[in-house]
Amino acid sequence: MATLKTRMAPTRPYEIVYIFDSALEDATIAEKLEKFHALLELAEPAEIEHWGRRQLAYKIGRHEAGYYVIANAKASPATLPEFERALKLDDSVVRYMVSLIERVLGAPKLSDEELAARAAAADDDDDEDDE
């Protein structure tokens, strides 16, 4: 692994998607996440979103389902190789992906007013279809 030239403690925002073995218990998964995140030496705790168990679109080895976890964390790039090594060695991690967050993904969250306006517009469209 090539060593990256990094200045002192520059952190970058990463999004990490984990797919754990769906047979694991929730407590075990939480424990493992904590262990992995400790390797990233985070200044502030990662934002973790549990999607939970879901069917995989195709079989990965013997797995047909996985427990999905999305984590957002600001980490130093220098900590990543060790972190990824731990993930690769752990058999309970079916798959993982670390990606740099360069842009905010998806649609911006709408305010209640905008949502109401959109819902009203959708209703108007339905009326037109009926005629």
Binding site: V17, I70, R103, V104, L105, G106, A107, P108, L110
Partner: peptide, 12 residues
């Protein structure tokens, strides 16, 4: 039209 700036790979 859906108001999406950048497509999210998680939005299957």
């Amino acid at each position: 039209e859906a108001g999406i700036r950048f497509v999210d790979y998680k939005d299957d």
